[in-house]
Design a binder for these strands. Structure first.
Lengths: 206, 206
DNA sequence: GCCACCCCATGACGTTTGTCATGAGCAGTG
DNA sequence: CACTGCTCATGACAAACGTCATGGGGTGGC
């Protein structure tokens, strides 16, 4: 069971402070070695292709491309590389997106470094790990009751744009937009579209 | 100039991963010693009172009370303790609030640990340090053009509440609320109150 | 082939907003 | 004291929004 070959890890996080500190802590684990670091999505991808790590530990929010996008690309271009997401704000939607992208581990940054190391090993062994708290949130949030168009229109309404603008951007008539907005809001149980957007965001439906 | 007594640091961050990693990295600096760690605002305050650090390094977003609130309390209860804020999302408003609270250092988490150590020393020496990028943002954002009431009403509008509800919560007539909302939006240059809220948030005016 | 469900649209209706004019009371400033 | 600026209010009008009924076209299941 003792690994003859160390477990090669890629670390991607745009916050230098955290990335560096994390690298230092993971280096204390004898069976782990950080072979590459990246500060952005594209950089993470490039580094992964260059260094072929066993596990890629990706921050969710990075400039260029977020963790899930990187994981998706990685799955296509480097299928042997397991991916996992580490994040500060664990919202249900992110978790769903991540799992759909083939991510095998999803943990909040509130775990300890030792625990993270364990999870890296778990993921490398082919198992999955999802933070229990986050999993519970995702389950309680349930599946989105919104249809594809409802979600799309709601997303376009996110920055407070008027109906006319949404209609133009979605290539729909204004009446249709209002219908979708109305039904989306009633499904969510919101008084108006703005609170609907907020709630849908929280539940990961957009 | 060589410190006979090591510089005592308090570390407060709700993300265990980061806090632990940071503590490990700062421990590598010979003249620094992390005397206490905290994972929430109230805990940070309690730890500070118990261990009387020279410098308190506070994360901006923590459960219970954010970094700036802790800094304010600390200023009152432990005037000799210098405070500094470390944050992921450096928005102009936060910086302003922090400086007003007597915080002497404000840095994003994109700096390296070595750099952070330097800044801790700078702050301890009685100087101030503000990340140049953040400072530039804050200056370009300018001062808030909003009156007290305008800002208050705008804040109540933040979660998408209808005018009637805002009026009730602010104990104002609906007409007055609409007037304030209207003038606030026009000062900010927004089409409606929702984008006004968003922009005001970004610029730190609410 | 019927039925359910989504997509898209239109028209109509009442409500909510945004905007403007106007004015009173009340600071602080020159 | 005159002046300026903030606060709060009212009334009125146009525009934007939310809601409902209705209908045609499409896809998938039973």
């Amino acid at each position: 069971m003792t690994p003859e070959r160390p477990l090669r890890v890629l670390l991607a996080d745009d916050e230098h402070l955290i990335r560096g500190a994390l690298a230092a802590l993971l280096a204390l684990e004898e069976d782990l070695v950080v072979v590459a670091e990246a500060a952005s999505g594209p950089e993470a991808l490039a580094m992964a292709l260059a260094h072929r790590p066993d596990v890629a530990v990706l921050d969710l929010q990075m400039p260029g491309a977020d963790g899930v996008k990187v994981a998706t690309s990685l799955r296509a271009e480097l299928p042997d590389c397991r991916t996992m997401i580490v994040t500060s704000h664990g919202r249900p939607g992110h978790l769903k997106r991540a799992l759909a992208a083939g991510v095998r581990g999803f943990v909040p940054k509130t775990v300890s470094a030792r625990r993270l190391a364990e999870i890296i090993r778990t993921v490398h062994a082919g198992n999955r790990y999802v933070d229990p708290e986050l999993a519970a949130d995702a389950i309680s949030a349930g599946d989105s009751p919104l249809t594809a168009r409802e979600a799309e229109v709601l997303e376009l309404a996110a920055d407070g744009a008027p109906v006319a603008e949404i209609a133009e951007r979605a290539s729909l008539s204004q009446g249709t937009v209002r219908n979708y907005l109305s039904s989306a809001a009633s499904k969510i149980g919101a008084e108006n579209r703005h609170t609907a957007v907020r709630l849908a965001r929280e539940r990961g439906w957009v």
